[in-house]
């Protein structure tokens, strides 16, 4: 390992880490919104939306993210929907992650006993108040460990966006290996940068899980 090269390449990886983080954060925020919307549609048995939600969750969870990404990036332009690579990457993580987040929210929402909702209504809260102030806070506490696990999963899955030439960590590593054969240095930096991003989140996940396990 040539440490001078490691120092030389580090800024490239720092720049790429920003791309990875930008896409991951964007995708995760959208996935949380999609997931919550689908879970609520299923909880309230909203006609049509809940059926579409069920089908969507199955498709999102049972197809590879790479195929989803290629469909969005190479397939959709054929019917006139052209998105930038960044938008495609975020949409892909939102689609994939939305399915996983929906399941996490759904099982958490179902774990809140119906009597909570009923009691809230008896006390005069409207349906939306009962949901926002009574059911959702309890469900969120239940869902947090699964949501954090999904966040780690989605940051890892963001590595596929190198497949559509977005300059994320994977792409920069591949570029250096292809151009200069500094394989050891590129792989070292790749692992270090992913570890710096992922180890804290995954450690946070263990702490959160431990806390909720103690609470039960």
């Amino acid at each position: 390992m040539n440490w001078e090269l490691v120092v030389e390449y580090a800024p490239l990886f720092a720049e790429a880490a920003r791309v990875t983080l930008f896409i991951s954060v964007g995708g995760i925020v959208c996935a949380l919104l999609v997931g919550l919307a689908v879970a609520v549609a299923r909880l309230w048995h909203v006609p049509l939306l809940s059926q579409v939600g069920v089908a969507y969750v199955e498709v999102a969870r049972n197809t590879p993210s790479l195929v989803q990404l290629f469909f969005l990036y190479f397939g959709l332009p054929k019917v006139g929907i052209v998105l930038s690579p960044e938008a495609c990457a975020i949409a892909c993580l939102a689609f994939l992650g939305g399915g996983y987040m929906a399941e996490a929210f759904r099982s958490a929402l179902e774990s809140v006993p119906p009597i909570q909702h009923e009691s809230a209504q008896v006390l005069g809260l409207t349906r939306s108040q009962a949901f926002m102030r009574v059911v959702l806070p309890q469900a969120m506490a239940q869902a947090t460990p699964a949501l954090v696990a999904n966040v780690v999963f989605l940051v890892k899955e963001s590595s596929v966006v190198s497949g559509i030439a977005l300059a994320d960590l994977m792409y920069v590593a591949k570029d250096i290996i292809g151009q200069s054969y500094d394989t050891a240095e590129a792989l070292f930096l790749l692992v270090v940068f992913y570890a710096v991003i992922l180890v804290p989140i995954s450690a946070l996940g263990s702490v959160v899980e431990g806390r909720f396990a103690d609470g039960r």
Binding site: V152, K156, E157, S158, K174, L190, L198, S202
Partner: peptide, 16 residues
């Protein structure tokens, strides 16, 4: 193994 993206592991074995 768990914390690294699978694509990183593939690169490590294939190129590394």
């Amino acid at each position: 193994i768990r914390v690294m993206p699978q694509l990183v592991l593939l690169f490590l074995v294939f190129f590394g």
